[in-house]
Design a protein around this nucleic acid. Structure first.
Lengths: 139, 139
DNA sequence: ACAATATACTTGCACAATCAAGCATTGGTC
DNA sequence: GACCAATGCTTGATTGTGCAAGTATATTGT
């Protein structure tokens, strides 16, 4: 590609790779009626204590703005996958809780996504995947 | 994060990392009046023989749809960074050529981006960056 | 106690990117 | 030579996302 600056190529190569990855993931997840971003939201909620997080925490966890989270959650609320709750200590924060049906959908989607992720990473051995994870973790 | 499936975490971690990277890159490039996507376009054009590519080639090179490329190029044409040219053999294709001023802007932006990319990759040694590039190249 | 500042959202507007549909051109097939 | 599928591109409508501004609540300083 570029003979001058390997870091430039590395960054551009990665950006291309991950934009393609997200498109493929979106396609796989569409059978569950959710997008990649929505899956990320559900994933973080599932991991959280009591499956509950504030919108701000959610935003930074998935790399979106606060307004992005607000809008992403609207359809999920209508589908009853998540519920709004109040925080007793601070009336500003409105907590998001994964509902029972949300957990169900998440687990179905997780299976699909896990299969996809394994397939996507299959050109690398487990050892190489670990190495990759370590390298990325430093960035 | 997830104790069940390391590939899932790896993919989600990466997606988060690169979405953040693109935002930072956009910020850096804004001093040249271009976005990350526009920089990618200019980069590919600069590398191409005679700094010239068809819109389809450009689209796949930067991971956009054909219509995305059409729309991205409109402002660049107005700024006279690129020029439209016809292909003698096939009247369907309209080639995009990097103009002289486009090359100038690109080289300025490349310097900024190169600096950014080096900084972004600085937690990794050159050796590690090579390893990372090799691993990503397989995916 | 009260003002000033900060935080947690939500909303209006703008923009980037996609898809579906359409147009023009090419190349193949009968 | 005339249809027909495929290709390269553009356009209209829609979606996703961010930013700036607004509201409500909390916190800090005096």
């Amino acid at each position: 590609m570029d003979t001058q600056n390997p870091a430039v190529d590395l960054v551009l190569q990665s950006a291309l790779l991950w934009s393609g990855m997200i498109k493929k993931a979106d396609l796989q997840l569409s059978v569950h009626g959710i997008s990649f971003s929505e899956f990320c939201i559900l994933h973080r909620l599932f991991q959280a204590p009591q499956h509950r997080l504030s919108r701000i925490e959610l935003a930074s966890a998935v790399g979106l703005s606060a307004s992005g989270v607000t809008r992403l959650l609207q359809p999920l609320e209508k589908m009853l996958l998540v519920e709004k709750e109040q925080n007793a200590r601070d009336a500003r924060v409105s907590l998001v809780k994964l509902s029972d049906s949300g957990q169900q959908i998440y687990q179905d989607a997780h299976q699909t996504f896990g299969f996809f992720a394994n397939q996507f990473m299959s050109p690398l051995t487990s050892r190489q995947q670990e190495t990759l994870a370590e390298l990325l973790a430093r960035l």
